[in-house]
């Protein structure tokens, strides 16, 4: 039975750990399907974590913190759009600028407001999201298999975990089953075709970036107001980049991107479990190696196993209408 509960807890943490990756990958899909590279997922996630933590602390309600984070992230996306869509700047440079800005800004603001560089005060239970226990979770726990599935895997997560996995079919539906999705995909493939169909290319890209901002805010809020009870310096820890890799690995498609996110989440969950564990015949694996596992996996998958990931045709190119 212990083996089964080990597995259950591993799946449970995989779902939790993958959550910010899923939000960020979905956010990335909107931006990049519209033809705008988004390296700034990392920075925006960090900013969202900071704003959500500060917002909840002052306003006393984590939902208001989330709302603030959404507003700020949409503004950051608009900034990226202003630089790279309207003014046709280099999209990667714009993203790098945003990332660097935010690392400094969050640290400095935390120091100015709370006296501690890069740390916000701990949130109390009213100020943060709590785990949701699904009805009858305790009562059903003892039923074999189904009980474990329901009570130990599905129940007991933060609201963001549920939202993240619900967002995937929603994104799929928007991208592939609506006219907005058709235009979104078209604008990333051949903006001239969209323009000559009488649709404003710039408006389309701004809309995509706005959705991108909303989604990435959820990832940040998850980090600072759900799994943790405060913001700390550089707490996004490369998740934005990892999500970007997952999105590319998933070929800009919500379903496969989800699988990639879960894979990364799983290796991360696994490395936590493996720390300090003696493996038969191998002995204890150095903790640094284990921690590097998700990143090694990223490199290996991207380099070898994915095959050629074909990006949207017009990605990275500002749309220039007149010669």
């Amino acid at each position: 039975m212990e083996f089964l509960s080990d597995i259950a807890s591993l799946i449970n943490s995989t779902l939790r750990i993958s959550t910010p990756l899923v939000f960020a990958a979905m956010a990335g899909i909107f931006a990049e399907r519209s033809g705008v590279i988004d390296f700034s997922l990392e920075g925006k996630m960090l900013m969202a974590a900071f704003v959500a933590a500060v917002g909840s602390y002052y306003l006393g309600n984590p939902w208001l913190g989330l709302l603030l984070a959404i507003i700020v992230c949409v503004c950051l996306s608009m900034l990226h759009g202003f630089a790279s869509v309207t003014h046709k700047g280099d999209q990667v440079v714009s993203c790098v600028a945003i990332n660097i800005l935010i690392i400094g800004l969050t640290t400095a603001l935390a120091a100015a407001w709370f006296g501690q560089a890069g740390l916000t005060p701990t949130l109390n239970e009213d100020q943060r999201f709590l785990e949701i226990h699904l009805p009858f979770a305790d009562a059903l726990r003892d039923i074999p298999f189904i009980g474990t599935l329901y009570s130990d895997i599905l129940s007991g997560h933060y609201v963001f975990v549920y939202l993240a996995y619900l967002s995937v079919p929603l994104v799929f539906w928007i991208v592939f089953k609506t006219s907005f999705g058709l235009r979104l995909r078209a604008v990333g493939e051949n903006p001239s075709a969209v323009d000559t169909a009488g649709i404003n290319v710039f408006t389309m890209r701004y809309k995509a970036l706005a959705i991108n901002g909303v989604l990435i805010a959820f990832a940040g809020a998850h980090l600072s107001t759900a799994v943790n009870a405060n913001f700390f310096r550089e707490m996004s820890a490369g998740r934005g980049y990892l999500a970007l890799a997952a999105m590319i690995f998933g070929k800009w498609h919500p379903k496969t991107a989800l699988i990639a996110c879960l894979l990364f989440g799983f290796t991360d969950a696994l490395q936590i479990r493996l720390q300090g564990v003696e493996l038969p015949a191998i002995g204890e694996i150095p903790v640094q190696l284990i921690q590097a596992l998700p990143y090694i996996l990223t490199v290996v998958l991207l380099a070898g196993f994915v095959g050629k990931a074909i990006a949207p045709n017009a990605i990275g190119q500002p749309y220039i209408k007149e010669r």
Partner: peptide, 20 residues
């Protein structure tokens, strides 16, 4: 002015879908 990985139908209705 065609999106190469779209179908003929998708290319033709693009911008004039008539429904959300």
């Amino acid at each position: 002015m065609l999106v190469e990985n779209f179908t003929v139908l998708e290319n033709i209705i693009l911008g004039f879908e008539g429904e959300t």
